[in-house]
Design a binder for these strands. Sequence first.
DNA 1: CTTGACCTGTGTCTTGGACACAGGTGTAAG
DNA 2: CTTACACCTGTGTCCAAGACACAGGTCAAG
Lengths: 176, 176
Amino acid sequence: MDFLSGLELMIDSYQGKEQIFGVNLNPAIVRLSCEEGCVKVIEMARRLGVTADTVRFYTRIKILKPGKNKANGYREYSEKDYNRLRFVLSARQLGFSVEDIQEILNHADKKKSPCPTVRRLIDQRLHETERQLRETLKLRDRMQQAVLEWSQKPDKAPTGHMLCHLIEEFTAEERL
Amino acid sequence: MDFLSGLELMIDSYQGKEQIFGVNLNPAIVRLSCEEGCVKVIEMARRLGVTADTVRFYTRIKILKPGKNKANGYREYSEKDYNRLRFVLSARQLGFSVEDIQEILNHADKKKSPCPTVRRLIDQRLHETERQLRETLKLRDRMQQAVLEWSQKPDKAPTGHMLCHLIEEFTAEERL
DNA sequence: CTTGACCTGTGTCTTGGACACAGGTGTAAG
DNA sequence: CTTACACCTGTGTCCAAGACACAGGTCAAG
């Protein structure tokens, strides 16, 4: 299909992909704001529920490579960019770092299966998340214990060798 | 007591504070490396089990204000600096940020009780830590679930609209 | 005198965006 | 036509708590 012919046609086929390329697609906006089935940064962000800054961020680090409108320099995000960003956001929800995602996309872009990489990386990140969870849990318990103990203690002014008796006595007790 | 007289006396009184001003205090090292009961950065770090970079960091942001040896410009950490850093490390273990600690120290330095501030701040930080804990827990569960489901799925090459079926199908299922 | 271990301050790096800013564009109203 | 305003661009900086690098100074031992 010729992407430069028939705007009406374009919009029809575009509407057909409504579920893939964004939500609440308003033909009036599409007709007004873009040609060739592309959208600008703020619309792209809205469709995926993120800020324009997030879209610009992934563009800046070249995970997204939208074209540029020759006339005004505006970025033009295509359906491919939409799918790519949706993928990135999904991967972030699973604990992958942006660097991980770049590695995964490198495979996919070479038509190679990213799955072995994905499995390896999630094992790694899962371990880290579990360690993080244990640490946060220990911290929370320590904090709760402190609040509990402190509720029985008075305020005190600092002395020469004691800056805050609450903190220092708690630490001494708990052997931290 | 005159701090400039009698090094022998200094070291005696210093040894008497062994439990306060550091562990494994070796009089020979003290005698060789410092006058006036002060130590250099690496020794300070060793006594509190942190790196010299950490000691320099707190010096840089002016939480520690050690003197300077006029002759060579070396920093001289006193017992007061030791107590202060020990306090900072204790507070960090309780989830206070460095900025929190500066606020706490500001009160203490004016001889005012830091306790009300400490109580207010830990309530705040405890809430944040609990939120963090819930989020990390949810992430961990999501990741475990993904690993479980993926163990039943094959690797696949990317297609036009599917970069990695593992990640995208999981997200679609879980309605993320 | 050299070697090597220590010291100094300063600048940069880490994450995943968020925010600021200067300057360009597009459109609706007055 | 002008003006106002909303949008766009790329770039630089900020966040937290240090870690690491670097150029240059100090000091004791061999």
